[in-house]
C-alpha cells in the first residue's frame, strides 16, 4: 500500500513538470514584449532593453524556463504589476478562499450525488428513479452562473435570508456562522452540475454491480437486502465512482471561476478573470499553476482511495 502511494507520488512528478512547461510556454507564446507592456508604449528602446535583461528575457527560452523553475521552488512567482505585490502572496491568499468554496461543493455533490444515484438504482424504473433521472437532466443542462443569479434573486433579494455576495459581512462580519451564510449559495450553485454527474454515474455503476454473480451469492447466503445494497453493491460500485469524484474535483475548481464572479467570492477564479482583463500575465501564470497542481493532488488522493477500496489494484 505505502509502496503504491510512493510510486504514485513519484509518477506525479513528471506530470507537475509537464504542467510547468505548458504554463511557462503559454506566457512565452504571448505576442508582444512584456517589458514594453510594463513600461508602456512611450518607453525608450534602451529602457526596454535594460528591463528585458533585468527580467532575464534576453536569454534563450530553455534557460529562462530553468531560471523560472528555480525561482518557483523558492516560492517566487514574480511580482504582479497591477497589484504591486508578490504573485505568490496574492495567489495563495485567494487560493484559500477557493479551497473553502470548492471543498464545500465537493462534499455536497459527493453526498447528494451518491444518495440520489443509489436510491435511483435500487428503485430502478420506479418513481424515485424517474425523479432522479429528470433532476440529473436538469442539473447537467443548467448554466451554473445563471442558477447563481436566480438564487441571489430568490434568497438574497426576495426572501433576504442569505447575503448576496462576498465571503464575510463588511461590518461586524467574521466567524464561522457568517462564513457559512455567505458560503451556502455559492457552494450549492457550484455543486449542482457535479451532483448530477455523480448521481448519473452512481446509478449506472450500481445497476451494473447489482447484476453481478457475487451479489447473487450474497443473497444466496442470506445476507439482508440492506447489507447487499450498502455493503456489497456500493463498495463494488465505489471502484468506478471514486475516479469520477476525482474528476469532479477538477470541475469544481474550474467552475469556481463563474461562481466566484457571480457571488463576488474573493477566490482565485475571480482573480484570474480580472488578471486576464488587465493583462497581468504573471498573476495568471501563478494562479493557473497553483490550481492545476492542486488538481494533480486531488487526483492522487482519488487514486489512493481507489486502491484502498480495491485490493486488486495494489
Amino acid at each position: 500500500m505505502w509502496i503504491y502511494i510512493g510510486k504514485r507520488l513519484i509518477a506525479s512528478v513528471p506530470i507537475l513538470l509537464g504542467l510547468s512547461v505548458i504554463v511557462f510556454a503559454m506566457m512565452a507564446l504571448i505576442p508582444g514584449d512584456p517589458a514594453t507592456a510594463i513600461l508602456g508604449s512611450y518607453a525608450t528602446p534602451e529602457n526596454v532593453a535594460r528591463l528585458n535583461s533585468q527580467l532575464g528575457l534576453d536569454k534563450p527560452l530553455v534557460e529562462q524556463y530553468f531560471i523560472w523553475l528555480g525561482k518557483l521552488f523558492h516560492g517566487d512567482m514574480g511580482r504582479s504589476y497591477a497589484l504591486n505585490r508578490p504573485v505568490a502572496d496574492e495567489v495563495f491568499e485567494r487560493f484559500g478562499a477557493t479551497l473553502i468554496l470548492a471543498g464545500a461543493s465537493l462534499i455536497l455533490c459527493s453526498i447528494f450525488g451518491l444518495i440520489a444515484g443509489i436510491a435511483a438504482a435500487v428503485r430502478q424504473f420506479g418513481w424515485t428513479d424517474r425523479v432522479v433521472t429528470f433532476l440529473v437532466l436538469i442539473g447537467i443542462s443548467t448554466p451554473s452562473f445563471w442558477l447563481g443569479l436566480l438564487l441571489i434573486m430568490l434568497f438574497a433579494v426576495e426572501l433576504q435570508w442569505l447575503p448576496a455576495s462576498g465571503m464575510y459581512a463588511i461590518y461586524g462580519g467574521g466567524g464561522p456562522l457568517d462564513l457559512l451564510a455567505h458560503l451556502a449559495m455559492p457552494a450549492v450553485t457550484l455543486a449542482v452540475v457535479a451532483t448530477a454527474v455523480i448521481a448519473r454515474l452512481t446509478r449506472a455503476a450500481m445497476l451494473e454491480v447489482l447484476r453481478q454473480d457475487y451479489i447473487r451469492t450474497a443473497r444466496a447466503k442470506g445476507v439482508s437486502e440492506r447489507r447487499v445494497i450498502y455493503r456489497h453493491a456500493f463498495k463494488a460500485a465505489l471502484v468506478s465512482i471514486i475516479p469520477v469524484i476525482g474528476i469532479q474535483a477538477g470541475f469544481v475548481l474550474g467552475g469556481a471561476v463563474y461562481i466566484e464572479t457571480v457571488f463576488q467570492w474573493p477566490g482565485i477564479g475571480r482573480m484570474l478573470v480580472n488578471a486576464i482583463s488587465t493583462r497581468d500575465l504573471l498573476l495568471v501564470q501563478g494562479g493557473v499553476l497553483v490550481v492545476a497542481a492542486s488538481y494533480v493532488f486531488f487526483n492522487l488522493l482519488a487514486d489512493v482511495a481507489q486502491t484502498i477500496v480495491d485490493p486488486r489494484l495494489r
Binding site: 474550474g254 467552475g255 484570474l272 486576464i276
Partner: peptide, 25 residues
Amino acid sequence: MRGIDLVMAFPYILLALGIVAVLGP
C-alpha cells in the same frame, strides 16, 4: 497520449481560461 494526459491534468475550465489569457478575449 502523454500529451493528451497532460492536457487532461488541467482542470477543464481553467485551461480554457489560460488559453484565452494567451490569445486575448
